[in-house]
Design a protein around this nucleic acid. Structure first.
Lengths: 137, 137
DNA sequence: TCGCGATTGTAGCATTTGCTACAGTTGCGT
DNA sequence: ACGCAACTGTAGCAAATGCTACAATCGCGA
């Protein structure tokens, strides 16, 4: 019973959602860091996410497998075109959500925190409405 | 390096966020089900979340440890006062987010989906603004 | 009352994401 | 040229959330 898992790779649907969020967060962070520094290292991300360097290392390795980032042992992390595109999309979405929250009267600190969590759950349709209501940027 | 994990229980911060979301989702779902049926069973939740009954069983056991739900072997699931309070809070928040999305012009189907994901990331301050902008319910 | 289907519970495994502890690299200063 | 500190990588563990497969329980109909 339960009639689930009709597809070949079972539990990948829900897991996938979270994995996607992680990928987006990391790629976005890497793009951010690469704007203020010449190189992005595992340690930078570990500080950013308040996580051990080991966790970052493993996630980066997975992102590399997915073609979203590029690294070599003991070398900084780069974004290939695919990663840059994703970063740009995430960045834009994040900005829209953030500006929208400000526009409806949420204070900056709260808007920053909420945008961080909300952005991954805002559909294209909702984002479009947010964009309009956020007013001119 | 990494200077994290100063507290006694390390990786509980981030994990905790997700665990909280799960708890809220389940308690909310139980409250929902108990409104349309006289009893809420593991199977009902498994269908609701499109997950195996085993996964539900384990989560319910954890929620029971936290005092959010009450169950006995082979018996339906109930909500103690603590669980009912949490459910009420979640429900209200969910409703506000949903009504808000409708108010800004998002279609019902999309609003339902987005509200589901967004609700866990909306702070009290943002929720207050949402409530005002959602208009009279 | 007996049995069979549905529900619930248990065992065991995989994956993700945390961690600590330790090992390997790199690079800079002496 | 050497060594130490910082950074990176590896090994191994815990917990959460998925799964399948199998066992146990319940309840209803024959």
């Amino acid at each position: 019973m339960t009639e689930i898992a009709k597809t070949s790779e079972p539990h990948q649907r829900t897991r996938g959602d979270h994995a996607t969020e992680t990928a987006e967060d990391y790629v976005e962070a890497i793009a951010d860091i690469l704007e203020s520094q010449e190189a992005c290292r595992v340690t930078d991300l570990a500080k950013r996410f308040a996580v051990s360097h080991v966790t970052v290392h493993r996630i980066i390795r997975r992102l590399q497998d997915e073609g979203l980032v590029v690294t070599k042992p003991y070398q900084p992390i780069h974004l290939p075109p695919k990663g840059k595109r994703l970063a740009a999309r995430c960045r834009e979405r994040h900005t829209i959500v953030y500006r929208f929250l400000l526009a409806i009267g949420v204070d900056e600190a709260t808007a920053a925190i909420d945008a961080e969590g909300m952005e991954h759950h805002v559909s294209a349709a909702t984002l479009a409405r947010f964009r309009e209501l956020a007013g001119p940027g």
